[in-house]
């Protein structure tokens, strides 16, 4: 276990940074969960809430940037502190992009007329639920610095990719069969791509966490 810093204010700064990352995580998680709900219920109100709340996450990202630059300048961190600080910047970026993707999905939900695309929608909801589970798990792992869970999350992305490939085939098939589905099909395609990218962002966070704890890079083994 890590001991406390001799300089207490250093610990306070690190704790503040950590709390901002976790807050970003919680908000990104809310946005992702809302996108799933908006999509499953075609609920424009929820979609609008997602778009409305996005700037708050961007502001947190800026705060993380400022905190990390401040700590770097004031403390000249080494070893695990350095790894935490450098990866905080990256993790904040991943979380911001997850929220961006959720907002993008919300935009498409508001445009969907839907839909005779029942099966692809089922798959996309599966993807969304799976990425949400991944995000939950990686945020908990981040909170507890649990490297084993980080590795588990890393491999969970394989399932996201599998569903995505199945979805692509289905959408291609449906759009070929019925040209009237192309508009919505394209929107679903973009949304599916967003969930696939969210899975990648979560996987990246798992890698960052692995690096914090071990100092090594995780590449799947």
């Amino acid at each position: 276990m890590l001991r406390a810093h001799t300089v207490k204010s250093y610990d306070e700064q690190m704790e503040k940074l950590n709390s901002r990352i976790l807050e970003m995580g919680a908000r990104a998680r809310t946005q992702l969960a809302r996108s799933l709900e908006a999509l499953s219920r075609r609920d424009h109100t929820i979609a609008q809430e997602i778009v409305r709340d996005e700037p708050g996450i961007d502001a947190l990202r800026e705060e993380v940037d400022q905190l990390t630059v401040g700590i770097l300048a004031m403390r000249q961190p080494m070893a695990i502190d350095l790894r935490i600080i450098v990866t905080s910047l990256k993790t904040a970026s991943e979380l911001e992009r997850i929220a961006d993707r959720a907002a993008g999905i919300a935009g498409h939900v508001m445009q969907l007329n839907c839909i005779p695309l029942r099966e692809p929608v089922e798959l996309i909801l599966q993807m969304a639920a799976h990425t949400l589970r991944m995000l939950d798990k990686v945020l908990e792992a981040y909170r507890t610095m649990d490297v084993d869970d980080a590795v588990e999350v890393w491999h969970m992305d394989e399932e996201t990719d599998r569903i995505y490939q199945a979805l692509l085939q289905q959408l291609q098939h449906v759009m070929q069969e019925e040209s009237g589905t192309i508009n919505d099909g394209m929107r679903l395609l973009v949304a599916a791509k967003s969930y696939e990218r969210i899975g990648d962002h979560v996987q990246n966070i798992a890698e960052h966490l692995y690096y914090i704890v071990t100092g090594d890079t995780y590449c799947g083994r």
Partner: peptide, 19 residues
């Protein structure tokens, strides 16, 4: 040593956690 020390004491010292 300064990014990924092998020993806990080294890490304690270089990160300012020395008891």
């Amino acid at each position: 040593v300064f990014t990924n020390p092998l020993h806990e004491l080294t890490e304690d010292y270089i990160t300012g956690r020395f008891g």
